[in-house]
């Protein structure tokens, strides 16, 4: 039986040790990335906050092309999902949440892990840390899709902490009425279109960062418990190994000593 075979046990211990090395290292990597991600997010939050405030000041004329009021069934979803693996149920939770929502709609997906769920998506590949370039590219595509009336709604699916969210990007929602008292420099014509672009990019990028941080949190937790599981398995196997080995030794000693006695009698 395999559980009684010393060689097999040894092999399983070695395999578990190797896995433990990987999970242990991954935990360290993930926690350093988490730290970096948190700083990025903390810094970005203020920017995003001011950006939202600023957008509130835009007059309706700028909104109109991006704030169509008609409800439509042609939608697009931006889905973020880290593709590194070794992060427990993070990926499948997120994608299981996204799949029924985005089913049958256009998908802009970030990360190769989304391939099995959304094989026909526009795919963007994620990088070590979320880059604003990717966010800009996505925001721009979304804008084009929306302006060309290919879709009449664009939403972002992302993860924040351990919760999943769906936020609408287009049509843009007016948060506060335009206030004419605001002084705009250099001029509305120059600033407003640019501000709008910046705003869209910011929303996308913030969601991206949140998802990134959530992924690192999930990975740290998953790797921590994996390392503990590996330790348990190694300990169990090692004690089985020692027990079997010792009993084989004992048996052999008994046999030798008995044979020696038997020879004399």
């Amino acid at each position: 039986m395999p559980e009684n075979n010393l060689f097999d046990i040894k092999k399983r211990v070695t395999a578990a040790r190797q896995t433990r090395k990987i999970t242990g290292t991954m935990e360290l990597i993930a926690s350093s990335r988490l730290y970096r991600g948190r700083i990025l997010l903390a810094n970005y939050r203020d920017w995003a906050k001011y950006m939202r405030e600023a957008v509130r000041c835009l007059p309706d004329a700028y909104f109109e092309p991006l704030a169509g009021s008609e409800e439509g069934s042609k939608k697009a979803y931006i889905v973020f999902c880290g593709s590194k693996g070794l992060s427990g149920s993070y990926g499948s939770n997120l994608l299981d949440y996204a799949a029924p929502i985005a089913d049958g709609h256009l998908v802009l997906a970030v990360g190769s892990a989304t391939e099995t769920y959304f094989p026909d998506a526009y795919r963007y590949f994620d990088e070590e840390t979320p880059s604003a370039d990717v966010a800009r590219a996505i925001a721009q595509t979304a804008k084009v899709l929306y302006e060309s009336k290919t879709v009449n709604e664009v939403s972002i699916i992302y993860m924040r902490g351990t919760e999943m969210y769906t936020d609408r990007l287009f049509p843009l929602t007016r948060i506060k009425e335009y206030n004419d008292m605001v002084i705009v420099e250099p001029s509305k014509k120059v600033l407003f279109p640019e501000l709008l672009e910046e705003y869209m990019e910011t929303v996308v990028y913030e969601a991206y960062l949140h998802t990134f941080v959530a992924e690192q949190v999930a990975r740290v937790t998953a790797m921590d418990s994996a390392t503990q599981n590996a330790d348990e398995i190694i300990e169990d196997l090692q004690s089985t190994y020692n027990r079997i080995r010792q009993s084989a030794i004992t048996q052999e000693i008994i046999m030798v000593s008995n044979a020696a006695r038997g020879g004399r009698a």
Partner: peptide, 11 residues
């Protein structure tokens, strides 16, 4: 089985 025991089904 060992992989599942360590990393879980999700991996």
């Amino acid at each position: 089985k060992d992989i599942i025991a360590i990393l879980g089904m999700d991996e």
